[in-house]
Design a protein around this nucleic acid. Structure first.
Length: 548
RNA sequence: GCGCCCGUAGCUCAACCGGAUAGAGCAAUUGCCUUCUAAGCAAUAGGUUUCAGGUUCGAGUCCUGACGGGCGUACCA
């Protein structure tokens, strides 16, 4: 419909005398106030200064030259300072509703990103401990944006990037080793900066159960590191599964060393003249890109900083042929992103294919106060603990509810309320309620719901019915908007409006007890609403229950 | 100091890359269950969009400057 209006308006503009080269971009938007119509454009106003004419006059000229199909649009009128408002015909609504019903669980899919190969890299927590609440927002955002892109036609892979070498992991191994020795009565201290979480003791205990005392002979921490890594990855895998997240691949940073990518990357940056040696370290000339200081690529110890493998990794992604590499990470990592892009660019790759979704931090709140759920000495709350406390659906929903670039206050008191206050249930309840009605319809008519003919939908004449249809038709656009801006909360806002439009309809129009024709038409409308709710919840990774 | 994000109703947040009368939920007040799920609906109240300038037909949105909060600014990841 949008493209239809755009082409009609373009034709009218040409007739009015606007030159081909001066055609403005024609924006079609949905007015905030329903009384303003179903679609509107502001072209007349944007043209006012160019044509040096009164915008309302321009609008009138455009309307006079518009050739609209009355089967689709019934009215085009001037309003306010020069908006042109359009109204959809009933026929158009019924036609669209009918095709929605035909699409069923595919309704909402578009081809906006058709053919685009996307790699979403997210979570990417190193296996040093269980996933925390902070990782939770990352995981859910990444997965949901991936789903949004998939619904928009993109070909999406999900990847988890990790590093199982380096100092952090050695300390992890040492920590487990220390706990293991303690289990057998030895007074071994945790290493400096060791991991204090209770899970370290759990892993040590597993090892004791499995191997008895035999590991006491181990001199180094390597065995413990390996065991810890495996145990932690298993737990992370279970957590992700619980959250409805399935990775396509896990990428080990180590492979970049093995295949020589790291060395080649440094070499290439040197050759381009963007790297130099100083104080035994290798530096990246980030000052040339407007930074205050140059940054270190390889420490004087010979170990690279994370920037170098990050650059090599992104080159690797691009070489795999992705058109879009989307990284999801927290606000604390934002500073590395320009360096990586510049590095990739210096190496001759198209850095514009790399995009980043940055999210702000999460604060847990309970009864109005910052809340620490964990009694463990380690200073974090795990995702599993959170899900145990409030449930999987609520967890996903709360992480998605807000715009990624504002701080998220996760109110556990609200999340735990199974009822009125909890916004997740509003959507699920609407779905369950519709299913309940449809079950009753089936009893009455002794027949399952069937696809109605288009004409049968003509009985939907009530204002709340038409408002609901219009809301349903906005679903694909809502997905696209959320996918383009990578903001899943836009979809939630839409679904809330949809559920609200449904309850207005439910309040004003009965389904059972009406004549057969009207009952069929309304049941179809309810069915369509349930379909859209279910599709929307699927994208959010949340259940759409049939009963509550 | 510098960079990024944020500042909207008592609280938590929306506002479709500059549009028409700034909207939801929670909290408050009131009304609605012998008819399809009241986990709901309807209504009332709540705002100088932190402040001061600027840009233009038009600003919560863009620019400048204050003020306030978060995160960075490592030879940590």
């Amino acid at each position: 419909m949008e493209t239809y209006l755009q082409s009609r308006i373009t034709d009218a503009l040409l007739k009015v005398g606007v030159e081909q080269d001066n055609l403005p971009e024609i924006k079609i938007e949905t007015p905030r106030v329903a009384s303003h119509g179903d679609a509107a454009t502001n072209v007349a106003m944007t043209l006012a200064s160019v044509l040096r004419k009164n915008p309302r006059q321009i609008a009138q000229d455009i309307i006079d030259n518009l050739e609209l199909d009355s089967q689709k649009i019934t009215a085009a009128e001037i309003a306010g300072p020069g908006f042109i408002n359009f109204r959809y015909s009933e026929n158009y609504l019924y036609e669209q509703l009918h095709s929605l019903l035909e699409s069923g669980d595919k309704y909402g899919e578009t081809e906006d990103f058709k053919g685009l190969r996307v790699l979403v890299e997210f979570v990417s927590a190193n296996p040093t401990g269980p996933l925390t609440v902070g990782h939770g927002r990352n995981a859910v955002l990444g997965d949901t944006v991936a789903r949004l892109l998939e619904w928009s036609g993109a070909d999406v892979d999900r990847e988890y990037y990790f590093n199982n070498a380096g100092r952090q992991m050695r300390v992890l191994g040492q920590s487990v080793q220390a706990r293991y020795h303690q289990l057998f009565g030895e007074k071994t201290e945790l290493p400096d900066g060791g991991y204090e979480g209770e899970y370290i003791q759990d892993i040590a205990k597993q090892l004791a159960d499995e191997y008895g005392e035999s590991l006491l002979q181990e001199a180094g921490e390597e065995v413990f590191r390996q065991k810890a890594e495996r145990a932690i990855f298993e737990e992370i895998g279970r957590t992700l599964e619980r959250m409805n997240i399935k990775m396509d691949s896990f990428f080990n940073e180590h492979t970049l060393y093995e295949d020589g990518s790291i060395d080649r990357t440094v070499q290439a940056i040197r050759e381009k003249g963007y790297a130099y040696d100083k104080d035994g370290a290798v530096w990246f000339k980030t000052t040339e890109f407007g930074k205050d200081q140059d940054t270190v690529l390889i420490k004087s110890s010979g170990e690279p900083t994370y920037r170098l493998p990050d650059i090599a990794y992104h080159v690797h992604k691009l070489e795999r042929g992705y058109d879009l590499c989307l990284d999801v990470f927290g606000a604390d990592h934002i500073d590395t992103y320009p360096d990586v892009k510049k590095g990739v660019e210096v190496l001759g790759y198209d850095a514009s294919k790399i995009d980043v979704l940055v999210y702000q931090f999460v604060t847990l709140v309970k009864d109005g106060k910052p809340f620490k759920m964990s009694t463990r000495k380690a200073n974090f709350v795990t995702l599993d603990e959170l899900m145990d406390e409030v449930g999987e659906d609520v967890t996903r929903f709360f992480f998605l509810m807000r715009s990624p670039n504002t701080h998220l206050e996760f109110d556990i008191s609200t999340a735990k309320e199974a009822g009125e206050k909890n916004p997740v249930f509003y959507l699920q309840y609407a779905h369950a309620r519709i299913q309940s009605i449809l079950r009753k319809v089936k009893e009455v008519s002794n027949d399952a719901w069937q696809m109605p003919a288009k004409e049968e939908l003509n009985l939907l004449q009530h204002e709340t019915e038409k408002a609901l249809i219009k809301k349903l038709l906005a679903f694909p656009g809502a997905i696209t908007a959320a996918a383009v801006s990578r903001e899943p909360h836009k979809l939630i806002t839409y679904l809330n409006e949809l559920a609200s439009a449904f309850t207005s309809f439910y309040h004003d129009c009965r389904i059972l007890g009406e004549s057969t024709g009207l009952m069929v038409a309304r049941a179809s409308l309810a069915h369509a609403t349930a379909t859209v709710l279910a599709n929307g919840l699927t994208i959010l990774g949340i259940e759409a229950p049939d009963r509550m």
